[in-house]
Computed example of a mutant assay.
Amino acid sequence: MSDETPGNATTPPRPLIGWRLLALFYDLWPALALWMLASLCFTLGYTIAGHHDPHENIAPLSGLQWLLWLTCWLLSGLYAVLSWRRGGQTLGMRPWRLVVAGANGNLPSWRALCVRYAVGTVSLLAAGLGFWWAWVDRDRLAWHDRASGTRMLRKPKP
């Protein structure tokens, strides 16, 4: 099975869902590093403020824990959106030659990339349903592709 679009030789080949998932797995590692840094900052700040012993965990479902989750989500979004805007790729997309582009092939707008990240988060939280949707979509687009007006393309080998 080929990941090239039949009939149109000028359009770069579209990625299969497997390439997307591999890139997502690769991107988990830089995101995890950012989350660890954020957690360290929160824990140190909480300890320095004298709220608890450094050997204790942050109380479950406290306001600080929700703030930490939000911070981690925003840091991941910053990583993704800045990477897509800078060169169309995150670190995880590079080995698989995947590129995010606008519907017309140009660099997507900041708004489109933010929408892509937000809807991609919802797709993942729905057990990846938005990603699996690409298997049945006529254009092989995931939910976040459709919502943001972007496309993920696979560059040909150099």
Rank of each mutant, 00 (worst) to 15 (best):
L67H: 12
P158V: 09
F131H: 08
V136W: 09
R94A: 00
L40S: 07
L107T: 10
A142N: 00
L28E: 03
L21H: 06
D53V: 14
W143S: 03
M36G: 08
Y117F: 15
W84M: 04
R146G: 06
A31Y: 00
A142H: 00
A31H: 05
A101I: 09
G130N: 06
W73V: 15
L113S: 01
C41Y: 07
E56D: 14
L61C: 13
M1L: 12
L74S: 14
D139C: 02
S123R: 02
L24G: 13
T43W: 11
I58L: 15
P12T: 03
W135I: 14
R138D: 10
G92N: 05
W143I: 02
L16W: 10
G7D: 14
L37Q: 03
L64C: 07
H51R: 12
D145G: 05
R111Q: 03
R14P: 02
K155P: 00
L67V: 13
L64N: 14
R85A: 11
R14G: 08
K157G: 02
G7I: 11
L153A: 01
L113W: 01
A9P: 14
L91W: 15
L107K: 13
H55C: 11
G50L: 10
H55R: 15
A49V: 00
Y26K: 00
W143V: 05
G128Y: 02
R14N: 06
A103Y: 06
S39Q: 07
L28P: 00
A23D: 04
C114W: 11
T90M: 09
A147H: 01
L125Y: 10
W96Y: 04
Y79P: 11
R140E: 10
R20F: 01
P108E: 03
G77S: 08
L61A: 15
P54L: 11
T43Q: 09
W73M: 13
R140T: 11
Y26F: 12
T121Y: 07
A134R: 03
S39F: 12
L75V: 05
Y79R: 11
A38E: 05
P13E: 04
C114P: 01
G128L: 04
H51A: 09
W73I: 14
